[in-house]
Design a protein around this nucleic acid. Sequence first.
DNA 1: TATTGTTATACTCTATAACTATA
DNA 2: TATAGTTATAGAGTATAACAATA
Lengths: 162, 162
Amino acid sequence: MNAPIDMEVRAHADHHASLRLWLRLLSACTRIEDTIRQRLREQFGITLPRFDLMAQLEREADGLSMSELSRRMMVTGGNVTSIVDQLEKEQLVVRQMQATDRRSYTVRLTPAGRSAFAAMAQAHEGWVVELLAPLSARQQQQLHSLLGTLKSGTPTLSEEKS
Amino acid sequence: MNAPIDMEVRAHADHHASLRLWLRLLSACTRIEDTIRQRLREQFGITLPRFDLMAQLEREADGLSMSELSRRMMVTGGNVTSIVDQLEKEQLVVRQMQATDRRSYTVRLTPAGRSAFAAMAQAHEGWVVELLAPLSARQQQQLHSLLGTLKSGTPTLSEEKS
DNA sequence: TATTGTTATACTCTATAACTATA
DNA sequence: TATAGTTATAGAGTATAACAATA
């Protein structure tokens, strides 16, 4: 048998399968993200980056510095300044001076911000549940596990490499 | 046993599982997309929307009208005009008059555009293969299948609803 | 000197709406 | 009137780079 040729054919087929998988992954993700983005705008007048920033703050009772927010959201500092400016104008977050380092601020949710975020987060979770509902709980577990492998880069032991 | 309460607990647990799944899905997708976007820019000086438009044209030897491009890319007409303007300036696509309807253009890849796209598409496919490599071929099939269920909204017959 | 954060600038993508030419 | 496409405008998000204040 022509093993090398077979392997090439197999490799090409696998490549196309990977590409199709990526297009499907991208399509599913974009569809869900666009739906969430649109509903956040229509129902709460907020954008996804602002929602994300509030979500970061909600998890940290002590607040976060601008640079830490920049790191976690993976955007540059200027953008964080702009987003925090907008949220502060709407009185959803506050900048507080730090005693120890006067260059740095701590950004926190205000009580109004915390309450507004709670309402948004609840609606958001409902949308996610709705949009993922075509998958059973067991299928969602499988998907979660597969995506974990993709993230970590470590193949599962129980799976041979094709 | 308190069946209703158990169901509520289960529902809450499922909700959180769905949310975690969505965050993981979004994270995986964004990471891959950002990598591809960056490499397209660095290695080919092109943006993802322009690459996508060329990909649409590559599949249609007869070219596409502006409105058809707008529909397929799910963006409004003004944006397509702007993207086609840029690609035409670089001589990667051409607008051709239609004999039948003088309001409408047909947009096609030029030979240079087709050749440039072939190189980009080959590199692109390689990146996708690389970025999905942590998953075995079998795992990729599973992921493809699960995402298909998510897309169609039709649960697989072999899976009960949890 | 290095770091924190802001400001200024520029670019891409996006939507909306007014507009022209043609059907 | 309706449709195809363009133009103008505005807004969000992004990166880069120069800058001020502080460490």
